[in-house]
Design a protein around this nucleic acid. Structure first.
Lengths: 340, 340
DNA sequence: TTGTAGGCGTTATCAT
DNA sequence: ATGATAACGCCTACAA
């Protein structure tokens, strides 16, 4: 096992000083051609690579960025992550990921651990518990300490920092408008609890589209499910049985796919009898049967922008206290679950 | 903006030495009660937290582990990652992820960057290009340097290190056997090119099951597609049109879902006329229509084991050169696409 | 009980 | 052209 070699080793071996080695490897003009060649050859031979940790300590820059997301096994976050990773890599940054698992405590702990020198800044999406508790002191402290932060998707007005999100309200609005234009009268909404910012915004878009057409909101056409990822229980089945519905907007893919299956089982033809639009244009939308029309959130783009914002803040000299909020427009991907 | 506070700041402020502060904060017996209380109170007040980078430099331990995977937007890898992350966190480790994007070069570069002090060890799954080139020098050098490595899923015999994988061959074997027991005669295989270790192993399982029943391998029943993630082109459609097939084993979910749609379009009834079994028991299998019987790879478990193996190697004192290979048994998740 | 000094690996400044 | 020294923040063996 050949140990990692350091400047010190090289210096000792070649009987020069450490600083000479350091300079020689940086091709400094100060060092004679001969010495440089000798040192560089030796370094190459022993595959010398500077120690990142030492450099980080010296520069007070780690070239790492911390990403905290609620869930990694979730297509949307994964997509954003890819955007972050790609952009970060081109700028020479590595990405440390922590998963909050939708837990406030984990979010705080992860942040504290990484904030002690491990990363130069954070990109994160709030856990649902954090949004529920409405407690953002950990974020505020971060900013107090001058550590840059970019929030994406699940953001909050309570914290001043850079943000990237999609216009969820407009996405829902346009989706519902499309359904109305297709002549649908009884448009249902399947959402989660409102403390999740995105679900709330999507609901608002739904309300707005209906109001514009002077359609009264029918509470019976709105189903709120507890968890984002599960469709256990038969609330949805009851819902479809009890209500006459001719179109559905779901705040995520899973609800939509699940809804379509129930509708099909109940004898509905999609899209003739009932149309479906989901959010999160992920893998399920593309491969479901029928394929699902859905509101694309441009996760990868979002990740790139977040990374770009963060790195800009990290690398800027004087810390100007000016923050941007970038709002992306969603795109409706039309597929078989609607009449196009 | 309140700057991060260091031992030095505290020492200067309280007019004691740095080492006194250091000891006091560690509750050392050497320091008087009074001094300790004073220092601890001050530290708490200013929210002192030791700098991770300095500690890493001192201890030559980063408490970071590097994970290099071919693709993050892929349910299986994501699942493994979750297992790694969970286990690592319980042991106080953070995870730095790099994505090789199925590229050899990126894999090497990512590894080199992280190997220079940023992580204590690696968990990785080989990129397809690496498996194709069959070049593992970067891994061998890593091991030479005494940096622990655990390979998972896409592994190679060419490198001696810890490994976790599932018994792909047996999974395929059992899947095909099940189809045979259901009376199927013309069982097709949809796979990728053989240089991907997992695809090869799954093919082998398919062959074995058929041979055992003295069924001759019919090359026309085997379709090999180029990319793992795409189903562009109509090779599969042609395949289903030209061959009489009554069952299909696909080496991944996407092929299976896509195949089912084509079969349905061609008038087949699933599972009556044709049965389907896929690999990678992901989200598509659960939500497709019909739901897909598939071979579960226990990704999360795999991640946990990989992390456990790695951390054990990292924390062991003397480097014993003994390596384990853990083989997980896959589970066939029976759903609607087969007769159960 | 407290403080000094040296070192982890690197770089930058200031001698020689 | 080369080297000594200090510093990044922390820890610890060894003085005092």
């Amino acid at each position: 096992m050949k140990q990692k070699i350091t400047l010190k080793h090289i210096a000792r071996e070649l009987e020069v000083s450490i600083s000479t080695v350091s300079k020689a490897l940086k091709n400094s003009e100060e060092i004679s051609r001969d010495t440089k060649e000798k040192i560089q050859a030796f370094a190459k031979l022993y595959n010398y690579k500077p120690n990142n940790i030492a450099i980080s300590l010296k520069n007070k820059r780690t070239k790492n960025i911390g990403v905290i997301i609620p869930d990694i096994v979730h297509h949307f976050f994964t997509t954003v992550f890819r955007g972050i990773e790609k952009f970060a890599n081109t700028k020479g940054y590595n990405v440390i990921v922590c998963v909050s698992d939708e837990s406030f405590d984990k979010e705080v702990i992860n942040m504290e651990i990484l904030a002690n020198g491990s990363v130069d800044g954070f990109i994160m999406s709030l856990s649902s518990e954090t949004q529920l508790k409405n407690d953002y002191n950990h974020l505020k402290e971060l900013i107090e300490q001058g550590i840059p932060l970019v929030l994406f998707d699940r953001v909050t007005d309570a914290v001043e920092c850079d943000k990237v999100l999609i216009n969820d309200k407009d996405g829902a609005y346009r989706a519902v408008k499309k359904l109305l234009e297709n002549g649908r009268k009884k448009i249902a909404l399947v959402a989660t609890e409102d403390y999740l910012s995105v679900s709330k915004n999507r609901s608002d878009g739904y309300f707005q589209a209906l109001k514009e057409q002077n359609i009264k909101i029918d509470k019976n056409l709105i189903l709120r499910l507890p968890s984002m990822n599960s469709v256990e229980g038969n609330e949805m089945e009851e819902f479809f049985k009890n209500e006459k519905i001719d179109a559905v907007l779901c705040v995520n893919e899973i609800y939509a796919i699940h809804g379509m299956r129930i509708a099909q089982r109940l004898g509905y033809k999609i899209p003739e009898d009932i149309e479906f639009i989901g959010f999160t244009d992920g893998i399920l939308s593309k491969f479901s049967n029928p394929t699902l029309t859905s509101v694309a959130q441009h996760g990868e783009k979002m990740g790139e922008i977040a990374a770009e914002m963060l790195i800009e803040k990290i690398e800027i000299e004087n810390d100007v206290e000016t923050y941007r909020t970038e709002v992306l427009e969603p795109t409706i991907m039309e597929r078989e679950s609607t009449i196009n």
